[in-house]
């Protein structure tokens, strides 16, 4: 076998391994819903007083740790949202949009925010958008593992 044949065989092995890994990266709906719910909770926290807002942020952090542990137990592996190339950008866009929305609720909507219809629209968009972005992230990550452009 020549060096080039060996290199070709090695690249084929890597692709086959990545495809087997991609088959394991399937989250159920409720798992995709969690990022949306987390950002929604943080946004809702902005309508409450300072102590309640901090308490919600603390609760979301604890929930994040529990989700990571569940991922490890269920899947036998852990992939952060910042893995992958294009998939990483999906996470960054989601994070920027969610933080932007949360800051807008805090500083851009007159208090009490919970009495403004725009707040509830923004909250619904955040929960639905966070869930949709989680699905998108999985799709893009799987495409990367299968060696296809998204």
């Amino acid at each position: 076998m020549t060096q080039i044949d060996e290199a070709r065989a090695a690249m084929a092995d890597i692709r086959a391994t990545e495809q087997r890994l991609s088959q394991r990266m399937q989250w159920p709906f409720w798992r995709h819903l969690l990022p949306g719910m987390a950002f929604g909770a943080l946004m809702f926290g902005q309508t409450l007083d300072h102590a309640a807002s901090i308490l919600i942020a603390f609760g979301v952090t604890i929930a994040g740790v529990l989700i990571m542990n569940r991922d490890r137990e269920r899947d036998g592996l852990f992939v952060s949202g910042f893995a992958g190339n294009r998939a990483r950008w999906v996470s960054i866009v989601l994070l920027v949009m969610a933080v932007g929305g949360i800051l807008y609720v805090r500083y851009g909507i007159a208090a009490p925010q919970a009495q403004q219809p725009v707040f509830w629209v923004l909250l619904a968009v955040t929960v639905a958008g966070g869930t949709a972005f989680s699905y998108l992230w999985q799709h893009v990550y799987q495409r990367e593992l299968r060696g296809k452009e998204p």
């Binding site: 394991r24 490890r72 036998g76 592996l77 992939v79 952060s80 992958g84």
Partner: peptide, 9 residues
């Protein structure tokens, strides 16, 4: 491609 993987997986 992952952050961490368990032996059996």
């Amino acid at each position: 491609r992952v952050d961490e993987v368990e032996f059996a997986t």
